[in-house]
Simulated assay, not measured.
Amino acid sequence: MSGDGSGADGANGEENDGQRFDRLPETADERVVAGRPTREEVVDWWEERYGLAPETWDGHTFWEKGKGKIWAFAGDLVSPTPVEAVGMRVIRARQEHWKPSTDAVQRFCEEATKNVVVLEPAEAERFVRGEDQELDRWEGDWGYLVAAHEFEGRVEPIGVGLYLHGELRSTVPKGRQEDLS
């Protein structure tokens, strides 16, 4: 899957209203807003990119607010819903490469089996400070990775990194960067 969320345009030509939350349609056949991702596409993307089991999302509904900001909510609401926030932002879609949010990676990617780079302690410290670093040992896909480190015998996700040309770029939001030294 390309992760672009494009597909068949809706028959009724509805447009995205960036000021409200609209529930994602289950499948492309149910899409009424052109370019809006479907639940099926979102679940498939997490499985294909990070190896997350589709069951990870059982009990969650997906919502779009803005253009491509996808939120997961452990429950259900009437759609559309005029609230400021619902659940957790999990993906920025409607762009060439979908980007998972830091919160989603920390919350859901403990069970990720693909595109997870486990950082050594010094690398993890640099990452959470927001520093980019050379990382020539990574032999997996380029693009957005789950950056993780081993903590008390378990691999724990710490954030989203962008891996390009031998460099791991930290995307830890400025307000969440930490100096652990």
Rank of each mutant, 00 (worst) to 15 (best):
E110Y: 13
E110N: 15
E139D: 11
E134N: 05
I70T: 06
W46Y: 12
E152K: 04
K174P: 14
G10D: 01
S6Q: 11
D17P: 02
V160T: 13
T81Y: 08
W57L: 04
H60R: 15
H97N: 10
W138M: 02
L24V: 07
Q177M: 13
F151S: 14
P54F: 15
P173E: 12
W57Y: 12
E120N: 10
P54E: 08
W63C: 04
E111Q: 15
P157S: 10
R169Y: 04
R49N: 14
N16M: 05
A148W: 13
W57Q: 08
V32E: 14
A112Q: 14
E125P: 01
E152N: 05
G130L: 03
A85L: 13
V172Y: 04
S181H: 01
V118W: 03
L24C: 11
R176C: 01
V32C: 06
F21A: 05
Q95I: 07
G87N: 12
G51Q: 02
T56E: 05
G161E: 11
E30W: 00
V172L: 02
T61Q: 12
E123G: 02
C109S: 15
R36M: 11
A53I: 00
Q106F: 04
D141E: 14
V117H: 03
S181W: 10
G7Q: 06
Q95N: 09
G140C: 08
V83H: 12
D44Y: 00
A85G: 12
A122E: 10
G140K: 02
Q95M: 06
D29C: 00
H60Y: 15
R92D: 15
C109W: 04
